[in-house]
Simulated scan of single mutants.
Amino acid sequence: MTIRFDGRVAIVTGAGNGLGRAHALGLAARGAKVVVNDFGGARDGTGGSMTAAETVVEEIRKAGGIAIADGADVSNFEQVKAMVDKATAEWGAVDILCANAGILRDKSFAKMELADFAKVLDVHLVGSFYCCKAVWDGMRERNYGRIVLTTSSSGMYGNFGQANYGAAKAGMIGLMNVLAAEGRKTDIRVNTISPTAATRMTEELLPPQALALMKPDAITPAVLYLLSQDAPTRTIMGAGAGSFAVVKLLESEGLNLPEDQWTPDAIAAHFAEISDMSKAQALEGAFQQTQKYVAQAAARLGLKM
């Protein structure tokens, strides 16, 4: 089976360079009409120009695809809404959103300015929320939507000097979890990609031979799968250098303690058992955790729930 996007309209943010460009080209090559969005700023989010987006649009058109350029700043809701309105006026709907736009303002936490923390969250997390918000009603009305958010290993596992970026990227997972739950009944599927690639954001961090393996094109197959008609929902995929993986947040089985042991000392004494991951599970929703704890307490007390 060949995955295609004929008749679908896609918005890709941050699509003037790197990963976003690869995703836009990939969607267009498989039949999607693509809004190539790029604010055109520097890596730290300053400046702004339509040149990068227009260059990618030209590439798509030369290859026989259909695309328009857009310069909306994703951290400005009015501009995001105008972008979605423009796509809807041009092509009738927005079926697909790939929220990829981002900036970096790396500094150790001790030296990080408040404005640098706020701006990175604004572009990554708030910007992704704005994009989802702007397409959500239309997707619900048509009972169809595919959204991919962009997280990072920095958010899931941590990386020195990236308190702002890591916090924003971890927030994507929380946003995905809720939107996937709320979108189920109208067939809006929401997933997250965790990419590792040679882009403007990573070029100074990796040696040349590693960068040669880390092509942005190696991420796009996972993104296109997560945006496809038969995509899963609420899935985090890691991708880089031709490797693809699924990431899950796991919770240990845990241990229910009697009330006379609700002390930090008892937790210290039982910590090996509490943290034993041999029966760990990926929970499917917030209430599942509540149900698990109540069931464990009931079982210890011999109660029927």
Results as ranks from 00 to 15, higher is better:
residue 262 W to S: 11
residue 196 T to D: 02
residue 191 N to L: 01
residue 180 A to C: 04
residue 182 E to Y: 11
residue 293 Y to I: 13
residue 218 A to I: 00
residue 218 A to R: 03
residue 159 N to M: 06
residue 191 N to D: 04
residue 259 E to L: 14
residue 270 H to L: 06
residue 159 N to Q: 12
residue 156 M to E: 13
residue 198 A to R: 03
residue 253 E to H: 13
residue 227 L to M: 02
residue 186 T to P: 05
residue 200 R to T: 09
residue 269 A to C: 08
residue 282 A to E: 12
residue 242 G to M: 07
residue 173 I to Y: 04
residue 241 A to Y: 07
residue 155 G to E: 04
residue 205 L to G: 08
residue 177 N to E: 15
residue 189 R to E: 05
residue 243 S to C: 11
residue 214 M to F: 07
residue 293 Y to E: 12
residue 207 P to H: 00
residue 270 H to C: 09
residue 293 Y to A: 11
residue 224 L to F: 01
residue 218 A to W: 01
residue 167 A to G: 08
residue 155 G to W: 00
residue 195 P to C: 00
residue 162 Q to L: 08
residue 188 I to M: 08
residue 161 G to F: 08
residue 282 A to G: 08
residue 243 S to K: 14
residue 231 A to T: 01
residue 234 R to F: 07
residue 201 M to P: 03
residue 288 Q to L: 11
residue 207 P to T: 01
residue 271 F to Q: 13
residue 207 P to N: 01
residue 172 M to V: 03
residue 213 L to H: 11
residue 263 T to H: 12
residue 214 M to N: 04
residue 225 Y to T: 00
residue 265 D to F: 10
residue 246 V to D: 11
residue 238 G to F: 13
residue 219 I to P: 01
residue 176 M to P: 07
residue 259 E to F: 14
residue 286 A to L: 12
residue 156 M to D: 07
residue 271 F to I: 14
residue 189 R to M: 06
residue 272 A to K: 13
residue 269 A to R: 13
residue 225 Y to H: 10
